[in-house]
Design a protein around this nucleic acid. Structure first.
Lengths: 197, 197
DNA sequence: CATGATACATACTGTATGTTTGTTTTTGTA
DNA sequence: TACAAAAACAAACATACAGTATGTATCATG
């Protein structure tokens, strides 16, 4: 089909890069980072392993890019939800619910919540979503409770949400559990910021 | 040195098995699960790869055993601390602090909190510490707040504690942060169970 | 239009896992 | 006690995958 012929180099570059990213994201979500082979990823992207290693330093650099992509997607959805709230406390709750919905998606949860910390290292993983997603959470915490220890509280909420998303992912059948978890999250947030109301 | 000669088979079995477990635990903690080679592990245990694969089905089975070991260790320490408390709420707080201290240790945190969910799968990881560690947390939650949704609340607290341990592990210099995180955890627990006091 | 740079493709190498086959030692039994 | 069966281990083999090095085609540029 020669989709890459008669194009400027920037276009070719972007085209194969995005194709590789999409294929990698699919493979990582489907089989996990370790079990996904670069051969299959390149083939699914309609490219060769050489192209892959031209665009990315190694396999973990590819994961890094995929994770950053996911982090931004989640962040955008969460921010949109939080901005629609009237109070800082409501913004936190709505944002938390949105995070659950977004992080739960099968094309995201394993890559973002499980494989990323292991393959990239926890500190790198943390830096990625501090640059996109969790920055918003931290700001929300500070807004809802100016005297709180924003760093510590943010980490606790973030960890609780991550674990909740993984639990819900396992029990995909049962909106009942989802509702109970959301209620518990509201109770957690309310409790943390009750002194400030 | 022929430490394994002139012994009963059960003794030989136990000796090499524990040696393999110890070596694997050290290697996993030091280099991570993926980067630790079975060759090095077997050598450190004074055995061959053949022995390793005689005792464990594959590399992940070895990790599984190490993780289970760690889970029990943490559970014992947490239970001891919780049992020394006078009220259910105090038991939760003391148990949480103990969990932080125990899970934080360099020979545990990476294996237990990072590599285990990725390599064993989240559900298997959850099953392991539900059988040992988290069973106690859930009982503590139920004791402190009989009307609470024990499953949901337990997951949130567990996730918050895991993430807090990883944060503290990164900033090992600074007992200041540790104190702030512990205070935030107390606030979280107090807030969650305030309605019950 | 010629030269260089960029984007890719192919072939190769090293390493690590898991398997298979073989050897030694123990254990049950005739 | 002799022998057979099974366990515990050792070593060689096969396979697969990541990363690299080299080669080629396409585009940019003076």
């Amino acid at each position: 089909m020669q989709v890459n012929s008669r194009r400027t180099q920037a276009e070719r570059n972007a085209a194969t890069r995005t194709a590789l990213l999409a294929a990698a994201r699919c493979a990582f979500a489907d089989k996990g980072f370790a079990a996904a082979g670069t051969e299959d990823i390149a083939a699914a992207a309609g490219a060769s392993r050489g192209a892959l290693y031209h665009h990315f330093a190694d396999k973990t650099a590819l994961l890094d890019a995929v994770v950053a992509e996911i982090a931004v997607e989640i962040s955008v959805a969460v921010e949109a939800e939080a901005d629609a709230a009237t109070s800082p406390l409501a913004a936190l709750k709505r944002g938390a619910h949105a995070f659950l919905r977004e992080a739960l998606r099968p094309d995201r949860r394993r890559v973002y919540l499980i494989d990323a910390p292991a393959a990239l290292g926890w500190s790198r993983w943390r830096a990625i979503d501090a640059a996109s997603g969790m920055g918003g959470l931290r700001a929300g915490v500070a807004a809802a409770h100016p005297r709180a220890d924003a760093e510590a509280v943010t980490v606790l909420i973030s960890g609780a949400l991550n674990e909740a998303a993984l639990l819900l992912a396992e029990h995909s059948h049962g909106a009942d559990l989802a509702a109970r978890v959301e209620a518990a999250i509201d109770a957690l947030i309310d409790g943390l910021f009750e002194a400030e109301r």
